[in-house]
Design a protein around this nucleic acid. Structure first.
Lengths: 341, 341
DNA sequence: CGAAGTCGAGTAAACGTTTGCCAAATTGTA
DNA sequence: TACAATTTGGCAAACGTTTACTCGACTTCG
């Protein structure tokens, strides 16, 4: 069943059917109604590939994430999908798992399906592959790491704002020995978080001398804590580069019978949904995933639809502290071992 | 850059280029090599929509889930995607959030993109919408709830096997008062789990008289536990219809200062990844998500590619108990209040 | 009243592939 | 050497839309 069948039954030309379906205003309302009637009766759905072929627009956006099973991403995917549907786009989702091979396949898939734009929401990506997309003039949006080039938008994340709040919150609770468990420092985002921590500490005259490089996983958080408690002067609070790390810390603390928050305050970063559900609920720096997805989508949309000369856009996402129950007043050293619930 | 450009440069016809690219064996290796050379040099990627249009095969499968943010689904999506990529398929992911409106949009999207098959991995779906797909003879695969019809495959889940193991495990640990927190009983899957529990209890002569209807959420688990401890004769163990419920129970137990597993044993169902990370790690009945995705994908593939007359296929997924640390010997009533870590 | 505009609908040419059919080239057979 | 049989590659017709052009029928205006 195709547009010709509709045309025949409504006794008009295929051009008119096409125009009616696409709600072109010049078509006579009478005719349009006749067309729509037939369309509904027959349950006709236009063939997207034919449309795409002739119009040159696939109405597909690519979305690249590290891995969907990483709790950071589902919310992004969800929001992105919602927006896509609202705007009659489809999304081509690929996960790269930081594997060059998979990235290459991702890019190939995107190009073959002729995506109109790609949001790369993984943190860091093979340059050479991006080139393939750039070469084809596909609009791109990155977070933090994008090149400064035409048709490339960047979402700049303001790590400092939230991390400063976190540090000052701890300081206000009289913590002076604050440790930081960083992410893998080859990731620009992890590096930026660490730097923000150091700067925030410096601002209030505290030493940022307890920094451990973790790997943004739960396991990493666990091992980091075991290292931390081996220190001569243990930290009374620990700020983590992401929530999974913080959850690892909480988990290890439980095993070591260190009470949180009374004996150790913990703050995470990201505010993945899961962090509401830890025991105790995690105080964390929020980097809104849905906001991020929204920015990415809008960036793509305007790149695709706006006046061809879209000025090199930069978007900004601020972070901010969410208070839950994993932080408390620092125990004074003397009462260190007594305090517990 | 299209196939004609390649043809021109390789000095062959477009037909030959097409055949070379699709590795049709009748084409002379010499020519094929020449074609591939040009293809690589120019970085040519075939246009999928044109292909789909003429071949009548979109190479897209639909995948319907409830919501990606539900921790049960990401793993499914991941596995499904991996398989899809391996077989040169793309996946059109939609989440319905149990909302009829969204389901309708989902179905429309699928039909417009001409998916070759749809896996409906949400538990329960609007009949009428399925009809639209059935009407177009799109192969479908369901879990548990599918109609018995041609071109519809079903994955039958064996809830009984795992739940029996769970019950017997608890019984072996001398638990006699075992509660069950069910899911929303309008869901066939939740009902089946409850029934499996009742049967398993009956088999070993224990009364299944502490059953509460929850809602498969963490909150639901929390409130269920508060009800449970109000009972005159408290349960010493609780089996939950899914992991989120169990996590809610653990969380509430923590707040109520009930020690798990010494004072209360908890078992979940699903084995979502998260359940490894609770404190204590959750003993649970595994229903392998990746296995489920694999079955669904294979069902679709064989429906699409096999000899036209594929006999009505039924697939089977067994469940089984995974032991972690949320279960322990039942405390005898006398030592009930003394025992704790 | 006739010429010049306006407006709406139809004709047909794309879009980039695959593939049925045919002809040319090659090989085998007598 | 001639003819049949078999490969192999090219021509051109699809696939289902959109859209630039065209053309007739009304309006409008001098």
């Amino acid at each position: 069943m195709d547009i010709r069948e509709i045309a025949r039954r409504a006794k008009v030309s295929t051009a008119t059917v096409s125009r009616a379906i696409n709600r072109v205003p010049t078509v006579d309302p009478q005719l349009a109604k006749r067309v729509w009637k037939v369309v509904d009766e027959l349950g006709y759905y236009p063939n997207t590939q034919a449309r795409a072929l002739v119009s040159g627009r696939s109405r597909i956006f690519g979305l690249v994430v590290s891995e969907i099973t990483n709790p950071f991403f589902p919310e992004i995917v969800q929001t992105f999908e919602d927006l896509a549907v609202e705007n009659n786009y489809e999304i081509l989702l690929t996960s790269t798992a930081h594997d060059p091979k998979r990235m290459e396949i991702s890019v190939r898939r995107m190009i073959e399906r002729r995506v109109e734009g790609v949001a790369i929401l993984t943190f860091g990506m093979e340059e050479s592959l991006i080139e393939h997309l750039r070469f084809r003039k596909v609009p791109l949006v990155f977070v933090d790491v994008g090149p400064d080039a035409p048709r490339v938008a960047n979402i700049r994340i303001d790590y400092q704002s939230g991390i400063r709040q976190a540090v000052q919150h701890l300081a206000a609770l009289r913590h002076a020995r604050i440790a930081f468990i960083a992410g893998p420092l080859r990731l620009k985002s992890a590096l930026a978080r660490k730097t923000a921590f150091q700067q925030s500490m410096a601002e209030i005259g505290l030493p940022a001398d307890m920094i451990i490089e973790g790997d943004h996983t739960l396991e990493g958080g666990k091992t980091a804590l075991t290292k931390l408690i081996g220190y001569r002067r243990r930290p009374t609070a620990v700020l983590c580069s992401n929530d999974m790390t913080a959850i690892g810390v909480i988990r290890e603390a439980y095993d070591l019978q260190i009470k949180i928050p009374t004996e150790l305050s913990v703050i995470g970063f990201d505010d993945i949904r899961l962090s509401q559900f830890t025991t105790p609920p995690l105080t964390t720096v929020q980097m809104s995933q849905s906001e991020l997805a929204k920015l990415a989508f809008c960036a793509l949309m305007s790149e695709v639809n706006e006046y061809p000369v879209s000025r090199r856009a930069n978007y900004r996402l601020v972070t901010s502290l969410i208070l839950r129950d994993s932080t408390a007043l620092a125990a004074s050293p003397s009462e260190r071992r007594r305090t517990s619930r």
